[in-house]
Design a protein around this nucleic acid. Sequence first.
DNA 1: TGCGAAATAT
DNA 2: TATATTTCGC
Length: 310
Amino acid sequence: MPLSQSLVPTELATAFSITPEPYRTMTDVTRASQDTLSNLRTQSVKQPLNKLNGLFNGFKSVEDEKLGDEIFDIETEENVEIVDGTVDGSDLRKLRRVDSGGDDSSTRMSKRPRLVWTPQLHKRFVEVVAHLGVKSAVPKTIMQLMNVEGLTRENVASHLQKYRLYLKRMQGLSNEGPSSSDHLFDSTPVPQSFQESSWNGNGTGAIAMAYASQMVPMPYHGFEMHSHQFNMMMQQRDWSGNKFGSVSAYQQRYQDISNQVIADERFDLQKKSDLSILFNPDSQIKMCIGWKEWSVDQKLEDIEVRVFDY
DNA sequence: TGCGAAATAT
DNA sequence: TATATTTCGC
């Protein structure tokens, strides 16, 4: 919808060779103001790259820092601009791609740096997909659970599409080990749970997953641990028929369990975000630390190393 | 809105 | 060619 309208009727304008003011939509105006803003900003703020690096401040472990550092293949400084006003890390997603056919230098805007799926990033992706269940893993949820700054739903959707094709291909090849052509995907083993599990096989499992965000460093047992706020990821319906009954009850339960795990010398946590706890509708609990998964029979003492050992 | 397959771009 | 990104129907 145009924001403005010519006062001169079209016929009249044509008759007198009046070139009408072009229609400007809200999008046009918004874009123009973004252009202006970012032009101003690139002059005063000279370190978009630092900004980018700063986006990953939330990550504290060496591994995570590597993850963050390597996530983007940054080409040149000119390719990066902050479109929105926020300078604090949270908003890489506001880097916009704008039409590249800009002959007008004032409309030249950068495109988002191309995402490179490093083995670390892919590993994280696979972990999350495994937790969700390969059937119920969708881009948005995966993106949220991966909790990697700057990662977009589109990035994930693309990767997921490719990964599904890969899985299909692998399934077709049954257990023919070696050479496919995909080094990235081959670099991270396909979790055994993908082959079918009671947690997601019938489409009713894997309802909730607690996950970490906003990590804050905290000393623990000599190495760095992270405490965090807890969020609940919920998928699918029916929270009424289960034992805990409410989201807050799940959160409480998650807190309880994770606190015990952290205090438990048997668990060699590198960082607390390695811990995930999943609940299914029967209030069964599955606990995952890194690449290991356990079934938890309510009491931690009963924990046995169950299946997956990658 | 957002998913997924297909098309397209790099 | 591989794969990232965009498009488009649902």
